[in-house]
Design a protein around this nucleic acid. Structure first.
Lengths: 344, 344
DNA sequence: TTGTAAGCGTTATCAC
DNA sequence: GTGATAACGCTTACAA
């Protein structure tokens, strides 16, 4: 098996031999080391190209303790927000000469733990993580952190103090903007379907909701505030519960777009006219929100800015180390924006 | 800088020392080598856990010439079909103890070439590729193929013979099904907006369209057959061109869902009633197609089956080598299905 | 069943 | 500027 697997992978020794130079010089030339004569370097580069030489990352990494590879753990890449963030990160890292290993936790804590181990094992130079919604304990990242490998959390970040860097959207403001918008367009009895409060995302979005309600002296009907897994089915169920009573909401702030879409679907099926009888707003600016009719108002999270900031912070960490631990204490906050559409 | 970066990464030597054994035995135990006493093995496993040992992939890979890592190059992960395929591949590979390095070419040939080099440099055990639409020359994969690294193409595959494995959807049948469906629901003057014919995808889908038209003895108006980049804007432009004449199509087969969505949008804006005046069908079953109204008929490509098949073939290749080159000559074809919705 | 020792391809530390 | 040489942490003949 694999008996044919050895067509002369060229190494620096081959280049050295061809040029009657020492491997050390080859290595230096290939790494742009200053003390190599210009001509020698050119010769080496030419010969390397001619032999089709490609550095063996494993050998290089083993020796230098640098892989030029960054790990990424994300719940799922198919979520629009994450897909955009990842794309920005990858393109940006590529410019800096870094690779990205993208891993999906499927929003499973056990998977996240396992992936952290695997990425440690691959000796990534840094790790970027958007946690699962269940992650409340972060000890599986300790090994990385303790080894001095920068760990950056984004979107879903630890609630308790943890020795890493955080980059998050302004979820409080997002919740506040969304709710205020519903109020300004005439909403009075505003419902809110949110996620479990184990995550900073929903804590903050809900807090923004409460703040806006309070500021406008609108009462909150706690029967209309849901904290549940934000699935299509759960959203429909919540809607049907709210709309079976004698008094019904006239507006809804959904903490993500999947929920908003499901709720809108429910409304359409049940003759609840949007926005006349029910104003609605979602969260994330998923592409579907602009396509559905009526189009859904939502909150733009600027995934590209999140990605850019992550790489910016990461490059700084990688270059300068992170001796200034106090900087990491406070999270970087990326602004959000209200997007007004036909649903409100 | 990084002066604090050495908190005793434990190695097999540390385990060996702690247990008064040789590193070789540790290595064997950790790799489930048969000739290790059960008790010794248990001791070693216990001690490894206690010391928080994690194999250094680079050292292991360098020595054994196996990285247990598979590379993946894809145009963009945010495309629904690819996101699903990737998720299936990753979860499936994970069960086999393999990691996946996901890279995006952004549908740029130069990027694809660069990524191929980088992944070779990382000495991935195998490579999975969905080419860019411009890729007609595949020599940048030669280095991998020549080194005996299995290369699997899926979705967008080389047109000319190339010494690798192909896994594709049944695009001919997809085009045929879509067009036949439009005909069955009453379409007579059927337009077709497709992609550039440099890609097998659009060659085949268009061929399926032509076949169905011919079979039903319907004439094809070549002014209504477009081969262009399948963007939102291009789709709208094609639509406006077709609908400015005195004779207009009564059905449209769009070769992807983005185009179908854009065309539907155009129809709605211009008072063309779908499906009464214009029947429509797209391709890929993008989540948006079921949300837009009227909901769009489309072709399901079963990304999960594609992913499963890829891993299945890959594992076989990795285990048994690929001495039987003739097997690779013919592509594996994944079936497609028609999804009927309100637009047709 | 276990130990010894060589070596994977690079880079770092000395010398010269 | 360049060349020896010794690691990096692990796997694997070959010995014992």
């Amino acid at each position: 098996m694999n008996k044919d697997k050895k067509p002369q992978e060229n190494t620096i020794l081959d280049i050295a031999e061809a040029l009657k130079l020492s491997p050390a010089t080859i290595s230096r030339a290939l790494n742009n080391h200053p003390h190599v004569k210009e001509k020698t370097k050119n010769d080496i580069l030419k010969m390397a190209a001619q032999l089709g030489y490609r550095r063996n990352q494993m050998a290089s990494g083993l020796r230098s303790n640098k892989t030029h590879t960054v790990g990424l753990i994300v719940p799922r890449i198919s979520m629009f927000f994450h897909a955009e963030v990842i794309t920005t990160i990858q393109n940006s890292l590529h410019k800096h000469g870094y690779n990205l290993i993208i891993c999906q936790s499927n929003d499973l804590l056990t998977m996240e733990q396992e992936l952290a181990e695997i990425l440690y094992s691959s000796r990534v130079d840094a790790l970027i993580v958007a946690c699962t919604l269940q992650t409340t304990d972060f000890s599986h990242f300790n090994r990385l952190v303790d080894s001095g490998i920068p760990v950056i959390f984004y979107d879903r970040v630890p609630l308790d103090p943890y020795n890493a860097t955080f980059i998050k959207g302004d979820d409080f403001r997002g919740g506040y903007l969304a709710t205020s918008h519903l109020i300004e367009t005439g909403g009075k009895r505003i419902a809110h379907i949110s996620g479990k409060l184990t995550s900073n995302l929903y804590q903050d979005r809900t807090a923004g909701y409460r703040k806006a309600m309070e500021q406008h002296q609108l009462p909150i009907n706690e029967d209309w505030v849901f904290h549940q897994e934000l699935t299509h089915e759960n959203a429909r169920e919540a809607m049907s519960r709210m709309f079976e009573g004698p008094v019904v909401p006239d507006a809804l702030f959904a903490a993500n777009d999947v929920t908003a879409i499901a709720a809108l679907e429910f409304a359409k099926e049940n003759g609840i006219v949007v926005p006349d009888a029910l104003k609605m707003i979602g969260y994330s600016n998923d592409p579907r929100t602009s396509i559905i009719s009526p189009s859904l108002s939502t909150i733009e999270q600027h995934p590209d800015l999140v990605g850019k900031k992550i790489v910016e912070v990461l490059m700084d960490l990688l270059k300068n180390g992170h001796e200034n631990a106090e900087v990491k204490a406070k999270p970087y906050v990326i602004p959000v924006d209200l997007i007004r559409r036909m649903s409100s």
